[in-house]
Amino acid sequence: MINLFKGTFLRSVTEIKRYFLNWMSSMISMFIIYFLIIFGFKTFGGPSMGNTVQAAALGYFTWLLMLTTMGDLSWTIMNEINRGMIEQEFLSPYGPLAVFIFYELSNLLMTFPILFFMMIVMFSFAGISITLPVSFYIIMLLAMLQSMGMGFILGGITLMYKRTNALLQLMQFAVIGFLFISAHGWKAIFVPIAPHFALMKDILAGKSLDGVYFMYTILGTILWLLIGFTVFRFFERKVRISGNLSLY
């Protein structure tokens, strides 16, 4: 298993290193959109928009975080089916789920520092203090893990139905909706991302961390990861029964 992780990590590092400019250009375009939004708020919103600017900055960053982690697996699978490499990954004795979990974790390890750097720049521009408590970063990591779980649901669908470009594009906007769901108490376990966003917003507003709600957020993260893995396993078997793994 350690060797499997080393291999997938090496692949992830090599791909990001080799195609860094490509990756960065998409990030820069996201940056530009962000600056335009915040600039718009600051210019036309007036001084009373203070908290709204912060919420918009955090919302945009959380959205970016989700996009980076949630869609990644599906695009990877689509590319690998297209190139024809997917079957070799299914021939790993550890199974495709383990291969892709390690690959996604490797990508997360690689992108986390970059996203962290982007967050500092973005938050500075929006006037948010960058000296945030550790709990903020833990929640940020939990949000990424939960998005990864949702990514496995989409990845499983992609394994089965292949060309899910339209679904992925739709999901980019659908996830914005999650940010605005108000999930109180134990219901937070079942609603993706909203509790993470609510907690991060509270921390930015200087409120103390709600321990119980934080627990629900952790449980919700685990739940969505498990749902993601289960759905992926379901489609993995279904695609082997239908025999259309390598068809694109």
Partner: peptide, 16 residues
């Protein structure tokens, strides 16, 4: 997109 060596390292790792 990987070199020959990187292919060995990746696919070798898939087999443990």
């Amino acid at each position: 997109r990987l070199s020959v060596k990187e292919n060995f390292l990746y696919f070798g790792a898939l087999k443990g």
